[in-house]
Amino acid sequence: MNGFRRTLSALVRTPQGAIGLLLCLLLLALTLFGPELAPRDPEKFHFTARFAAPSAEFPLGTDWYGRDLLSRVLAGSRSTILLALLATFIGTVAGAAIGIVSGFLGGRADEIMMRLNDALMAIPSLLFALLILSVLGSSSINAVVAIGIAFTPGMARIARSVTLQAREFDYVSAAKARGEGTAWIILAELLPNVISPVIVEATIRVAFAVMTLATLSFLGLGAQPPSPEWGLMIAEGRDHMFRSPWPILVPGVAIALVAISFNLLGDGLRDALNPQASS
C-alpha cells in the first residue's frame, strides 16, 4: 500500500495528474449515480418544447422529440463510460496475459506469438474492430468485445517488452533456482513489476476506448436506438442538425470531456511512475 500512496502523492503533484484524477473521479461518480441524478425521464417526449435551447427548464436544451438532453446524456454515461472501461479491461487483461507468458517463455514460442501479434497490429485498430463486428453483429456488448480484442495486440507488445526486462532480475533467477513453478513465478514475481506500465497504458487507452465505442455506435454498429449512447445520439441528431445544434453539441462535448479526463490522468500517471520523463 506504501507504493500506492507514493504514486498517488506523486500523481497529484503534477498539474495534469491532479486535474485528471479529480475529473475522472467526478465522471465515475456521475456514471454510478448519473441515471438517478437525471432531472427528467430521458425517454419522455415534450412536444411543446422541441429543439429548445438551454433554459431553466431544460438546462442543456431538448432534442427533436423534446426529450431533455441533460437527462439523456446522464442516462447514457453508463453505456458509454462503463462499457469503455470494460472494453479496456478486456484488452488489458488479455494483452497482459499474452505478453507476460510470451516474454517469460522466450525462444521459439515467443517468436511465433509475437509474429502473429505483429500481423494483427498491422491492421489499423478501427478497421480491426469493424472486421470483428462484421462477424459478431451490431450491438453494444459486441462493440465492447471488438474493442477489447482490437486493443489486445498493442497491450501484449508492451507487457512483453517489460517482462523481458523483469525476467533478467536476480530475484526471478532466485525463484527459478528455488524450484518455484512457472505459474507462481509469473504471478508473484513478474506481474507486480509489469503492472505499472500496463496500468499507464490502460488509462490512456480508456480515452481511446470511449472514442472508438462512440464511433462504432455512430456508424450504426454498436448501441441501437433508442439507447441514449452518446455516439448514437449524435448519429440521430444529424438528421436535424440544421434546425438545432444542441442534440449533437451536448453528447459531443460529453465525449470530449471524458476523453480529456482520461488523457490527463494517463499523462499524469506516466510522469508519476517514471520521474525521468517528467523533467
Binding site: A207, M211, T212, A214, T215, F218, L219, G231, I234, G237, R238, M241, F242, P245, I248, L249, G252, I255, A256, A259, I260, N263, L264
Partner: peptide, 17 residues
C-alpha cells in the same frame, strides 16, 4: 489536448452543422 480528445465523427459533424 482538445484535438486528441475529439473523435473524428464529432468534429466532422460539428464542422458540417
Amino acid at each position: 489536448y482538445l484535438g486528441v480528445s475529439l473523435p473524428e465523427f464529432v468534429l466532422a459533424t460539428l464542422l458540417l452543422a
